[in-house]
Write a protein that binds this DNA or RNA. Sequence first.
RNA 1: GGGCGUUUAGCUCAGUGGUAGAGCGUCACAUUGACAUUGUGAAGGCCGCUGGUUCGAUCCCAGCAACGCCCACCA
Length: 722
Amino acid sequence: MENLSSFEKPYNSKEIESKIYQIWEKSGYFNPDNLPATKNPEAKSFCIMMPPPNVTGTLHMGHALGMTLEDIMIRYHRMKGDKTLWLPGTDHAAIATQAKVEKEIYKKENKTRYDLGREEFLKRVEEFAKTSHDAIIGQIKAMGASCDFSREAFTLDEKRSLAVRTMFKKMHDDGLIYRGNRIVNWDPKGGTTISDDEIVYEERETKLYTFRYSKDFPIPIATTRPETKLGDTAVAVNPKDKRYKNYINKEYDADFAGAKLHIKIIADEAIDPAFGTGAVGVTPAHSVIDSEIAQKHGLPMIQVIDERARITAGKFAGKKINEARELIVNELKENGLLEKEEIIIHNIATAERTGGVIEPLPKLQWFVKTAPLKDLMRKPVETGQIKIIPDYFTKTYFHWVDNLRDWCISRQIWYGHRIPVWYHESKCVPIPGRENETSQCEEISVGEEKNNCGHCGAKFIQDEDTLDTWFSSALWTFSTLGWPSENEQLKIYHPTDVLETGYEILFFWVARMVMMAGYALGQIPFRSVYLHGTVRDSQGRKMSKSLGNIIDPLDIAGKYGTDAMRMALISGAGPGTDMKISEEKIKGYKNFANKIWNIARFVLENSKNAEGDVSEKKDKELLKEFEELKNNITTDIEEFRFSQAGEKIYHYIWHRFADIIIEESKPVLKENRTAKTSKQILLQKILMGSIKLLHPFMPFITEEIYQQLPIADKKLLMIEKW
RNA sequence: GGGCGUUUAGCUCAGUGGUAGAGCGUCACAUUGACAUUGUGAAGGCCGCUGGUUCGAUCCCAGCAACGCCCACCA
């Protein structure tokens, strides 16, 4: 009460927010070990692992939305008296971070990573990652996130590296990780392989050429990529196709653009007789499907394109593929071999991070064998052990699991977890890039650093490649809790309770966490998956640099207050649904913050010294009504209806409490009877109750009001009983 | 090509088998107030279209359309 003077008007979010956050941090209550409620051995645990933001820059509105939703759940459970842990962290995001730094260095110094060398380049990336990390942590705090920084993790720190190495070895020992020479997605721009999920398809107009390899070749074929035809070893037709029946199993030699081709005509059910000429030139080295056909029919594989996307065979060897394509087409025209040229709309595969056009190439890489792990991913979702919200995403999830191929996990980039495998330096077993050199001893060391081969004594060197960043992210729910050490933390908090993330990484991340936790711990990683949508601008467009419509969460929070931003983000959008955000909307919630502020001032001023209980019947009814609201909101939060919960408390405070209850109390407060006291107590109670209900949504202003109230035995609103 | 989602007031979105809801915006009036950011009230809807189930459908079912998203190796 004596603090009344500091109840300034209007509400000043900026000053109060940084002050309040410091108080919270100092209290130590972000750490569940310090929570008074959790001293109770009966206390339940509640745990969320923060999806680690990439250290590629700063946080955007999507992060702000996620943080807000997570903080709502965390604050609610903390107030409820659960042993509540929200563990924060960041992701090294291997390829994304490396690509970003490479780009910057090239722009500033006109140098590539190869110019700098591995060591120096990594130093630069780490510097960048550190700066980025620090900025991100600052942002997380500014958003009011009540996470436990004493447990902060990084996907590339020492503990997580141990988890990665351990998992790699375990899976290798179980035959779930293998090295194989297979067609992989090669990104010539990034100079690395990528997984199927990192491919983005782009619709483009492409020319479809119909031609013959040579004059005396009996069957014309169609292709969009004549330059790959230098590596053809067969032509496949449908066995039922009458046109080609007589040719099946015959073999032909052809001179095609300076390459001597030996083509076998084969029959395969997969060929669609209606497309093109109904005959497909099979290029085993440069197409996944062709390599499968080749395997089935025992055809040889001839690589004709290298890692720099240059042709390596025929008379155009050394030319870039686009150039070679033109030259080959010209030659076909000159020789009268080109029968048709038409424009079709075609999906071309590009790399998500670099935009490079994917070149399928045969390469020796590390893979996770997914077939034996599919059940681990499918079952818990099928049985409802893991609940995906909204539930229609389960269908998408199953579809992905069912169609999953082996996961290529090795990358030819430098930033990331180095593959924990050591080979003989003296070329005993195939070494990447030196596949042709072998010797007697085939010892390798997996998961364990060794200087020398225990078998033949030869010197060992480590694999040059690094792991797909999603391999380390997949361990996140338990690597953060100290796995592989079997400790108390892991027992208390795993499985975690909720995974809150954007729907766009359902496959990249969510499914793989289910796989890894199931495999390593025999547990589900989380009980519920809450998927939020994309935050778009007021016109519904995605926010992007090129459109210039990016709203920076820090700017907004500074301008309107973090509380207002949080409310605006979670209102009006359910799970899985994209939402539009505009400054207008945020401004509306800033007004709301001011409204509450003034409600608190009014109540404080008008209920000084009032003690006792509500005595009037009408007031008791109003309290009962409030109880009902509280129950409704509690259910909404428990059932992940955050938007509705937020709107209910908003509506109650403004249009019920302020507009009606307070307005109607004004004449009563002028009287001097028990009715007045009853009303005063009522106002106090509803105010206190309201700021509690609102706290998870708007933590700063509610905490500040709480601190201003004359309460006996005052602590922090953050840990007040829900 | 396969799958998923959305369609309700000018805008953003809730919602229920029984005559349609909120916020913002608009309009009118009031207001120096706990409130620079206030209040009261009003206008505004074939609840995408066509059928079916039902006493009754915005809701359930079928089909269609538009928009959006995801997946896929048609060469």
